[in-house]
Every structure is written in C-alpha cells, then in structure tokens.
Computed example of a mutant assay.
Amino acid sequence: MKHYTYDEWLQYVRNEITGKTREEVENHLYTCDQCLEVYLQAVTANESSLPILSNETSFTDAVMAEVSKKQGMVSDTKFAEKKSNKKKPFYKQAAFHYLLAAAATILLTFTGAFQSLATYANSLETKQVQEKRPSMTEGMMNKTFAWMDSLEKKEANKK
C-alpha cells in the first residue's frame, strides 16, 4: 500500500491536484488510518487559508433550503412517473411474484424435490465423516516416528 506524504496531503487540501489523482487519494483515505492522521494534520495546518463563515446559521439555513428544493424536484419527478405508470401489468406486480414463489414451493414439496436434496446432502455429509484422513502434520509425525524406529532397529542389530 502506497502512503502519501504530508506535502501531497497539503496539495490535496489546497485543491492543487488533478481529478484522477484526487480520486485515488480519496479512495486511499477511506482505507488508511495512518494517512488519515497525516491528512488531518494538513487540514489543521491549512485551516487559516480556508474561508471563514461570517454567519454560520444563515449558511446552514441556505444549504438546507437548497437541499429541500432538490428533494422537492426529485419527489415531483417520482410523482410524475407514478402518474404515468399507474396501471402495471399483472406479471409485474409483487403479489403475482409472491403467488408464483408459493406455487413453486408447493410443487417442489409435493414432488419430493426437497426430500431428495436433503437425502443427497446427508449422503455427502456421511461420506466426509467416513473418509476422515489424517492431517498433513499427523502424516509427517507418523513418517518421522517410523523412520526413528527403523534407525533404532538398525542400531540394535549392530550391537
């Protein structure tokens, strides 16, 4: 992971980098706590060059008014879309989808598909239990002990 320097974060805070680089820096900022600390230091150091709000409450009110306007425009377009699409065909309605899912479930239940799936899953489970092989570590230990035993036998035969 590439970490950004303090100077690079200052450039970011001062808006002196290109769009693609800015996007990379922002994505990195979401994932790196170390760079977040450096970024916060750069913001604190550059705080004096940021614009000062003379009246914070009026600024907040202006922002909220703009947000309300945008939400009103969005809700107006949604209302217009609902008016134009008032009557949906039956196959696009949620109730039809629920009925179709219920019918498929009943059909699969009565044909025994779920039972055969359960039997198949059970057979797979029992095969895995029966085919229990020793772990690689156990195999290495067994081979080592067998080798040591053969060395002991050779030493005993020499005496």
Rank of each mutant, 00 (worst) to 15 (best):
T105H: 13
S116N: 06
F59K: 08
T119G: 02
A113K: 03
A45T: 09
N122F: 05
L10S: 03
M73D: 13
G112A: 04
C32T: 02
S75G: 00
N46Q: 13
M73G: 03
N85H: 12
L53S: 06
N55P: 01
N27A: 15
T18W: 08
K20H: 07
L53H: 08
V74P: 00
V25H: 14
M73E: 14
M64I: 04
S84R: 12
E66D: 15
F114V: 09
L10D: 03
F114Y: 15
Y6M: 10
C32K: 05
L99Q: 11
I17A: 02
E26F: 02
S58N: 13
E24W: 01
A113T: 11
A95I: 15
E125Q: 14
A45H: 14
T57R: 15
K82R: 14
L100I: 00
K92E: 10
R14W: 06
A95R: 09
R22I: 00
K86Y: 11
G19K: 05
S54K: 15
E47N: 14
N46D: 12
K92G: 05
E37D: 06
V25M: 14
T126H: 04
V63Q: 08
A102K: 12
K92N: 06
A65I: 09
C35N: 02
L124Q: 08
Q71T: 07
L40Q: 14
E26G: 01
K83A: 15
L36D: 10
L100P: 00
A62C: 03
E26W: 01
Y6R: 15
S68I: 05
T21A: 15
A65M: 10
A118W: 06
Q93V: 09
Q115D: 12
T126S: 09
V13F: 02
G19H: 03
T60Q: 14
I52T: 10
E16W: 04
K78Y: 12
H97N: 06
E125K: 15
T111P: 03
T111V: 14
Y98C: 05
R14V: 00
W9P: 00
L107P: 00
L100T: 06
A101H: 09
K69H: 12
Y12S: 01
N46I: 01
Y39I: 00
A45S: 12
K70I: 12
L10A: 03
E24R: 01
T119I: 12
A62Q: 13
S48K: 14
K83G: 04
Y91R: 04
K83V: 15
Y30I: 06
S49P: 00
V13N: 02
S116P: 00
E66R: 15
D7Y: 10
A104I: 09
D61A: 05
G19N: 09
E37G: 03
F79C: 07
T77L: 12
T77W: 13
A42H: 02
M73P: 00
K88W: 10
D61H: 05
T31K: 14
N85W: 06
G19T: 10
N15S: 12
T31R: 13
L108C: 05
K82F: 07
S116V: 14
A101E: 11
A104W: 11
Y91F: 13
L50Q: 09
A104S: 08
Y39C: 01
D76F: 04
A104V: 08
